[in-house]
Design a protein around this nucleic acid. Structure first.
Lengths: 130, 130
DNA sequence: TATAGTAGGTACCTAGAGGAAAGTGACTAT
DNA sequence: ATAGTCACTTTCCTCTAGGTACCTACTATA
């Protein structure tokens, strides 16, 4: 069903960019967005510092930037509690959750094919062309 | 089927990065790779300049870089014909073609949800929080 | 008194990605 | 003799994503 015909058909919708997925790739797969969405989906509603600690290597500045972007795109819902100390909670939106099957698909492809990529890299590096 | 359980199950495979899809995202969705793979899949085996013209805005330097990377990752097959002028043909590999359903899935999500993202952005911009 | 915790904001800096433009080599067509 | 083709390569330059470090206000705790 999701075969070559789908791909070709979808391509017709945006002939000028030669790739109808460019827009969605920028939204969904720009830097840090997958770990953030993944963590939010995995652990449910959580606070800024929890997110920061779970992702591990992200800096607060960048985490804020990405969360704002995801909020603007409607993928994440931010709830501010005006307390002291301040409390802010982030959760994935319905739109964000609608990516779950896609992410699962991606994870499945990775499980099936990542070792092939590794193998190809090894082959290329041990016997470089020309 | 591809629901929350899949997502969670996949997450268990790489606890340290908090996101099992990071690796595959870098391989498949790094800059220019989707337009290149899309064009290769759409128009079949083709030469460097054809690719260049179809993608439109890419520079030869970057196109070469991305094609090398895709070749190393086993997504693209390069064939060199030592003629004058030189002739090089690129085609998508079997591994690359195995991404087709995933890309179709992505295009489907885009068709269903891109306008929601647009709407969310508009709402955010016309009535910014706080 | 001073320190920690929270959710950021701000200023500064650097590395690296990517663009522009020209060059290359070997041959062909005019 | 000159120009053109192809598939790059090289050089130079810009831009920006992202990192480091420090700052904010307010309170509870030691």
């Amino acid at each position: 069903m999701a075969d070559n015909a789908d791909w070709v058909a979808a391509a017709e919708t945006d002939p000028e960019l030669a790739c109808p997925t460019s827009a969605v790739v920028e939204i969904v797969f720009s830097r840090w967005t997958t770990p953030i969405l993944w963590t939010l989906n995995r652990h449910g509603r959580q606070r800024f510092v929890e997110l920061e600690r779970r992702i591990g290597t992200i800096t607060p500045k960048v985490l804020t930037q990405r969360l704002r972007q995801l909020e603007r795109d409607g993928m994440v819902v931010r709830t501010y509690h005006p307390e002291v100390p301040p409390r802010v909670e982030y959760e994935i939106s319905e739109l964000g959750r609608s990516l779950a099957p896609l992410f699962a698909h991606l994870a499945e492809w990775a499980a099936d094919n990542l070792d092939k990529v590794e193998q190809a890299r090894h082959d290329y590096d041990t016997d470089p062309p020309k």
